Amino acid sequence: MSATVEGKRPVPPDIRARKGGVPLVMLTAYTTPVARLVDPHCDMVLVGDSLGMVLHGLPSTLGVTMEMMILHGQAVARGLSRAMLVVDMPFGAYEEGPAQAFRNAARLMAETGAAAVKLEGGAHMAETIAFLAARGVPVMAHVGLTPQAVNTLGGYRVQGRGGDADRIREDAAAVAGAGAFAVVLEKVPDALAAEITRSLPIPTIGIGASADCDGQVLVVDDMLGLFTAFRPKFVKRYAELGAEADRAIAAYAAEVRARRFPAPEHVFGAEPGR
């Protein structure tokens, strides 16, 4: 049973202490109603920069701003009482150097109430992660497929196959050594993710990685069938709410056009109480 279900709201040291234990559960959320739905079931809730594509129709995460992350972070915070809130650092908010990263991470945490931030990048981000961790900013790292680097990586491709595996190993070791309390492994081969999980002292959170990771994360709109623009192999649909919503909206439209809605029970009479 997770720390959240037991009633203790976790903080980053609690998450780190779960290494090798009951798998950690994390989902994204971008709004207060969805945060309330996922809160009882998750150890961590991520306000991911995926909101740019899922909610705002952007072609990638590169156009997401600090203001967008803060707005949605505040909304999600209002819906959480048990799970730990993590907010993504958007593209351009931390790559310039440790000082820039600290200013923006401190702002995200202060304005959203997040317990931690997440940033993408491996060995080249180790100095920044160490700088943040030393100044009271808990960092969840993210290696493998890093969507903010999609143009450099040549698309949303599996990372770490063949000779590229050493790069992912080195990145994961570097962020752990720099002080990250956990690391997301995205779209890396199963066996490599399992190997990295065994080698690191911090929890690994898989997305398109391995069931042997210390936890898993999915975009909530993907697993509920609400975001259908594309479907990565690693997404399991636990519901088809998009199709259900389409049927409901079609039924509403048909009833309006046929003047069957509103029915007598949905309108008000001239007399009080009717």
Rank of each mutant, 00 (worst) to 15 (best):
residue 1 M to D: 15
residue 9 R to H: 02
residue 10 P to A: 03
residue 11 V to L: 04
residue 12 P to N: 03
residue 15 I to G: 08
residue 16 R to C: 07
residue 19 K to A: 02
residue 20 G to F: 02
residue 21 G to R: 07
residue 23 P to E: 00
residue 28 T to P: 00
residue 32 T to S: 07
residue 35 A to Y: 01
residue 39 D to G: 02
residue 40 P to I: 00
residue 44 M to K: 05
residue 44 M to D: 00
residue 44 M to E: 00
residue 47 V to Y: 01
residue 49 D to G: 06
residue 51 L to W: 00
residue 52 G to V: 00
residue 52 G to D: 08
residue 56 H to K: 12
residue 57 G to A: 11
residue 59 P to L: 05
residue 60 S to I: 06
residue 60 S to A: 09
residue 63 G to S: 10
residue 64 V to H: 06
residue 65 T to W: 08
residue 68 M to G: 10
residue 70 I to R: 04
residue 71 L to C: 04
residue 74 Q to A: 07
residue 78 R to S: 03
residue 79 G to I: 00
residue 80 L to I: 06
residue 81 S to Q: 11
residue 83 A to E: 03
residue 92 G to S: 10
residue 92 G to A: 13
residue 93 A to F: 08
residue 94 Y to G: 12
residue 97 G to I: 11
residue 99 A to C: 13
residue 101 A to H: 05
residue 101 A to R: 07
residue 107 R to S: 07
residue 108 L to Q: 05
residue 109 M to K: 09
residue 109 M to N: 07
residue 112 T to R: 02
residue 113 G to L: 00
residue 114 A to W: 00
residue 115 A to H: 06
residue 115 A to S: 12
residue 116 A to N: 08
residue 117 V to I: 15
residue 118 K to W: 03
residue 120 E to I: 08
residue 121 G to N: 10
residue 122 G to C: 14
residue 126 A to R: 12
residue 126 A to E: 11
residue 129 I to H: 10
residue 133 A to H: 05
residue 134 A to T: 12
residue 135 R to G: 05
residue 137 V to C: 12
residue 141 A to S: 15
residue 145 L to G: 10
residue 153 L to P: 08
residue 156 Y to W: 14
residue 162 G to R: 04
residue 163 G to P: 02
residue 163 G to L: 15
residue 163 G to E: 11
residue 167 R to E: 10
residue 172 A to P: 10
residue 179 G to K: 11
residue 181 F to N: 08
residue 184 V to N: 10
residue 186 E to G: 09
residue 188 V to M: 09
residue 191 A to W: 13
residue 192 L to P: 08
residue 193 A to Y: 13
residue 195 E to V: 12
residue 196 I to E: 13
residue 199 S to L: 14
residue 200 L to N: 03
residue 202 I to W: 09
residue 204 T to G: 09
residue 210 S to P: 04
residue 210 S to F: 06
residue 211 A to Y: 06
residue 211 A to E: 13
residue 212 D to I: 01
residue 214 D to H: 02
residue 215 G to F: 00
residue 216 Q to N: 01
residue 217 V to Q: 00
residue 223 M to G: 01
residue 224 L to G: 06
residue 226 L to I: 11
residue 229 A to P: 05
residue 230 F to M: 06
residue 232 P to S: 04
residue 235 V to C: 13
residue 237 R to M: 13
residue 237 R to C: 12
residue 242 G to H: 14
residue 248 A to F: 07
residue 249 I to Y: 14
residue 255 E to N: 13
residue 257 R to K: 15
residue 259 R to K: 15
residue 259 R to G: 10
residue 259 R to F: 12
residue 262 P to D: 03
residue 264 P to H: 04
residue 265 E to I: 01
residue 266 H to N: 15
residue 266 H to I: 07
residue 267 V to F: 03
residue 268 F to W: 09
residue 272 P to H: 02
residue 273 G to I: 04
